[in-house]
Each structure stands twice: as structure tokens, then as C-alpha cells.
Design a protein around this nucleic acid. Structure first.
Lengths: 350, 350
DNA sequence: CTGTTAGCGCCTTCAC
DNA sequence: GTGAAGGCGCTAACAG
């Protein structure tokens, strides 16, 4: 069946310990190393990760927990995390928690079983219960998201206020004035942060946004975005721009606008957030605020690796700065409603 | 630090063995069970997964290896796999191999270390080297993809021939006659299968497809699709429809068409494959052949679980049947080039 | 430099 | 029903 080190040692004619040392580059005579290496090769010996884990106390595995693997943002984070930790010989255990808290907590509790050496988690909802579990966690954890200030956990976050500000300023600079907002659920961390940021950005620009120009989708998904945007565009007539709290919601805005015959960007400019792959794939291409998904994933992974190396280092909080990526959905000048047929024309695409 | 069963036993005033039995529901007196349960609760005891692994020989972990986590198809598979195996108490270790074979092989070799009890792999390129490694694997594996007939490995596959046939027939039924094809790399399993399927479907319909109506993208990605489609639409004038080997390539066709002022679907019908989330998000919404990504993931997971339960069961091969999902990108009637300005109008959307 | 020995935490015979 | 003891595969002390 499975080849053990004992068998290798026997075949090489040395003791178990010598075999171990020889393979691990500890002090051993050239002859022993040669004998053992050869026996190992002949038997196709592979060390047992389970036994090594038990012995060393570490699994060389890290867990990555996200709300929704379906959202491309998390995929980018995942990829960044994986790429980063692989160099240090870690594998990544993925865990999609759904947007339900119970699964989060369940995962955190099971982490105590020691199947992973650390955790990167990007929760949609940061509840007291979740924080309590994080606090009693026996392995290092890095949270991607907006953590309360008094929580002593390594943390990487996007800068939503600046990000939303970039979007609003860009729209204002393009001559838009009647700006609507499609947010995600307000009981989520990004939902609350981005909603607040939108209000402030508008206030700072001296823009008064009526209540009906802001809607909240049931979820950060395309379907929810389409519904919410439909409501928004119907209830707040005359909008000339919409900011969406993420790209999926923005795609929903496109669909709602199309249904109402509102041309994008001619009649309605749209700006998304996250700058996920989708932004470049849509037509017209979507202007979006890059909140640094990959960067956040990478930095979270780095923080985790650093803490694994030195458990006593001071807690770090990193903020990834946003960047506006201007594409077609916001670049054509605003036009009055009836100047041309609704629809996209190739002339408007760069 | 970490609470061990020994400590629980001490606190409960029973032996290690009794504590183990009490917690695992083996024969033990009610009193012992009570004492142990209480001690465990008070100490917040959690069994150590590493030790259990070593003892039992199983990790309750399964690995899932895919070429590209960035492709939504794999995300859907991943989700299905995770959902399916979670019920049986397995965790999923994700491994994105890139499209490079070396990483595949590397993973397979390291699987011998016993950190996972089984593997689901969906390789883009099924090479001899890969098959050789699969063959000498010490844990059960299920391959999603087109495996050679003589390989005795549990296998789940899509039905590309039927799928491409559905696309072509649908286009013919909508009155399209000059159909182009954007394929992915021919050295990949899906690329080869779909290319072949397209040729046959056209032949079966009595359609002769000139060589220039078929192009091969460098990769199954949006960027590669845009490039390839640009070439296609320029070199094969007068096409009234394009089938793309996946949805990302289809999105590329949209962009290339827009650049050339070819209205979709008025001038050019487009059909994608995979029916990923993207299909519904694009505008016009993309008609696509659902190849059952989620179903393939789920079935692969089921096969793997079944084999873990019974290593001696006969090898199974499952084929997931495709389904055409008709949306807007293929439903408007074909029109001559100059009848109207290029662009999409809301009237064309259902 | 090498071999012997003792665990890592758990489960599981085996006697009692 | 219970406790003592052995061992999963490996590494790290300790002697020699």
C-alpha cells in the first residue's frame, strides 16, 4: 500500500532516524544520504502529510472563506491568495459560507480542529457573533473588510469613501448632475460603507440627492440589481447617471435601462464598483472603481504569512486605495431624451 | 493551549479510552457520558483533525483542481462540488492549476502525501503524462472532461456534439445560413471536441463552411475571443451568425462585432456555450448552450463519494446532456446590412 | 554521524 | 463498562 519511511530505512539498511535526517537535509554522511535517496526513489516514497502535521503541529494549509464564490471579486481574491501563499508551500482550503452567518461561525469553530494553520475571511456581514468567534480562534486570522476600530485583528480593507468619491466626481466632471445610487443590502459591511460614502460624496459636491434617487437591492447580485434599478429608474425620473455598489448591480442597471429605453451612456451614465472582469466584458464597457480585489487578497495573504512567522508582531491594518477605471459607460456626453433612438451605436464605443 | 482528550479525561476522572468512547457514542455508562460531555464542554474541547487523520487514514478533505478559477464555469462546478460533499462532511481544497500541465502533475504527485482523500479534476489538456500520473494515483479520482475510452477512471463529461448541434440547428431554424465559429485552442480537450462537433453539425445540415469562417482563439478567454472574432469577422465577410466555444469567447464576438458596426442580433446572431452567469448579464442577453457545469460538478462529486464508500465499484462514465437556452442574441430575424443603423434597440429585447 | 526512544492526539484492540 | 497499552508515520531529543 502506502510506503512509509520505515520501509525506506529498512531497504537502505539504516535506522528510521537516519533515513529521516538524510531526506530532510540534516546531518548525515554522504553514503547514508545516497543509500536513502536511492531506496526512497525505488520505493517511490512520499512523506505522509498527515503524520507530518501531527508531529509538527502545522498542516501547511490555509483556509479562505468568502460569502459568494459566484462573485468574481472573490475569485480574484482567491487567486491572489493562492498565488501568494503557494510560494511558501501552503495549500488553500476554500470555504464558501453563503451569505448566512451561521456557516461563517460553523467554519470558525471547526478551524479549532487544526485542519488549517490560518484563515483569511471576507465576510459580508460582520456581526458581534462573528467577532466573538474570531476572538476565540486558535489560529491566526486576517479579515478582509471593514472591522470595528477596537478589534485587534489583522485587517485589509478597501477605501469605499474615496472610491465612491472618485465615481461621483467623475460623473460631475462629465456634466452629470442627477445621480442615482443602487446599493446592496444595508446590513452588510460594504453596503453600509458605500451608502454612507455616496451620501457624503454628494454632499461634499453640493449635490442634493432626493431620497427616491437611492435604492437598496436585496443582494449584491445581478438579479437583485436589475430589480432595484428598475424601481430606481421608474421612481426617480430624469436621472442622468447611476452609481452601483458593485459591477453585478451595474449590469442590472444596464438591463433596467434597456427595458425603459434609456440609452447608456447617452441618456444614462453608469459607474460600477470593483472593476471585476465583467466591467470590460459588458457593452458598453463599464466604467468602474477598482477597489483592489486582487491587491486585498494578496495583502491579506501576506499579513497572514507574516503572522504565522511571528505570532507576536503588532496587529496591522492595511487600506488598499481605489482607482477609477474609465470606460465607455460614462464617457459620452449627456443628451436630452428624444435626440436619437434609444440604443447603442458603434460610434459611441471607443 | 490546545485542549486534548487526555485533559478532558483527567477532568472527568475517567481514562482516556473511556473519554474517547463516551464522545464517540461507543459503549459507556450514562454516568461516564455525562461526566465526559461536561468536562469537554467546560474545556471547550475540539478533537484534533490532524490526529484523527493520522489514525483513521482519512482527512475528510477532497481536492478540486481546475485550469482557471477565473472562468465562471469552474466556479459553478466548484460550488456544486462543495455543496455536494459538504453533506458528507468533506471540505474542499481548491487548486487552480493554470492552463499549464506541470502544475497538474505537480498536484497529482503531491496528492500521494495524503492530504486529501480524493480528487475531482477538470483539465483543459488531457496529456499522456497526465493520464500516467492519474493512473498511479493512490487516491480515487474523477475526471470531468473527455477521457480516452480505454482509461478506467470515473468520468463525467459534457456532450459537445449534441450541444454544438443544438446551436447550429437553432441558428438554421432562425434563418441564418452563413455561420462562423470561434473555437478555443485545438490542443485542449474541449477545443478539439467542439471544433469537430461544429464541422459535423454543419455537414449534417448540408451546410458548407469555408475555412475562413472558423477561427481558433489562443485561449478560452474574453481577450483572446475578441481578437479571434475580429479576425473572423474581417476575413469572412457576410456571416450572419457566429457560434462561440464558450461564453467568454462569445462576449469577445460581441465586442468585435460592435467595433465593426455589426448589430447583434440584427446583423449577426451569436450563440455561446456553457450558459454561464455571463450569458444573462450581457446585452443583448446571450443565447447559450448549457453544458451542465453545475450538474457535472455535482455528478463528479457524487461519483467520488460513491467510490470512497466502495473502492471496488465498477468504473462509471456519465454524460450530462446539453440544453439550449435561447435569449436575445439569436432571436431577431436576420436583416440586410443597411436597413437600419447598427445598434441595439429595446424592441429587440424580449 | 548514527541508532534508540519518546512522543504528537487519537482510536482500538485487549484484558479485566 | 472500563483501563492499560499499542500504534498510525513522522521528527527530535537523547545517547553512543
Amino acid at each position: 500500500m502506502r510506503v512509509t519511511l520505515t520501509q525506506v530505512a529498512q531497504r537502505a539498511g539504516v535506522s528510521l532516524a537516519s533515513a529521516s535526517r538524510a531526506l530532510n537535509g540534516e546531518s548525515a554522511s554522504a553514503r547514508t544520504v545516497e543509500l536513502v535517496a536511492r531506496a526512497a526513489r525505488e520505493l517511490a516514497y512520499v512523506p505522509d502529510a498527515r503524520a507530518q502535521s501531527l508531529k509538527s503541529g502545522s498542516t501547511r494549509q490555509l483556509a479562505f472563506a468568502v460569502a459568494d464564490v459566484g462573485n468574481h471579486v472573490y475569485v480574484e481574491m482567491l487567486r491572489a491568495v493562492e498565488d501568494t501563499v503557494r510560494e511558501d508551500g501552503y495549500r488553500v482550503l476554500i470555504s464558501s459560507t453563503g451569505s448566512a452567518v451561521p456557516r461563517d461561525v460553523e467554519l470558525l469553530q471547526s478551524l479549532g480542529r487544526g485542519f488549517a494553520d490560518g484563515l483569511v475571511i471576507s465576510p459580508l456581514r460582520i456581526t458581534g457573533e462573528l467577532l466573538a468567534e474570531l476572538d476565540r480562534l486558535s489560529v491566526p486570522v486576517v479579515v478582509i473588510g471593514l472591522l470595528p476600530d477596537d478589534v485587534a485583528i489583522d485587517n485589509v480593507r478597501a477605501n469605499s469613501p474615496v472610491g465612491v468619491g472618485l465615481a461621483v466626481d467623475h460623473l460631475l466632471a462629465s456634466g452629470r448632475r442627477r445621480i442615482g445610487f443602487v446599493n446592496g443590502p444595508l446590513d452588510t459591511t460594504p453596503g453600509r460603507a458605500r451608502g454612507e460614502a455616496f451620501r457624503r460624496a454628494c454632499a461634499a459636491a453640493g449635490l442634493s440627492i432626493p431620497a427616491e434617487a437611492s435604492v437598496v437591492a436585496d443582494d449584491f447580485t445581478f438579479a437583485a440589481g436589475t430589480d432595484a434599478a428598475g424601481t430606481l429608474l421608474r421612481q426617480a425620473e430624469g436621472l442622468d447617471a447611476v452609481v452601483a455598489a458593485n459591477d453585478l448591480l451595474a449590469a442590472g442597471v444596464y438591463h433596467a435601462a434597456a427595458e425603459l429605453g434609456l440609452e447608456v451612456p447617452g441618456r444614462l451614465a453608469v459607474v460600477g464598483m470593483d472593476d471585476s472582469a465583467l466591467a470590460a466584458q459588458l457593452l458598453p464597457t463599464l466604467t468602474s472603481v477598482d477597489l483592489g480585489s486582487a491587491a486585498r487578497g494578496r495583502q491579506a495573504a501576506e499579513l497572514l504569512l507574516a503572522r504565522l512567522r511571528d505570532p507576536d508582531r503588532p496587529v496591522q491594518r492595511r487600506v488598499v486605495q481605489p482607482r477609477l477605471v474609465v470606460r465607455s459607460s460614462s464617457t459620452a456626453p449627456s443628451r436630452p431624451a428624444a435626440s436619437r433612438p434609444a440604443g447603442l451605436t458603434s460610434e459611441e464605443r471607443p
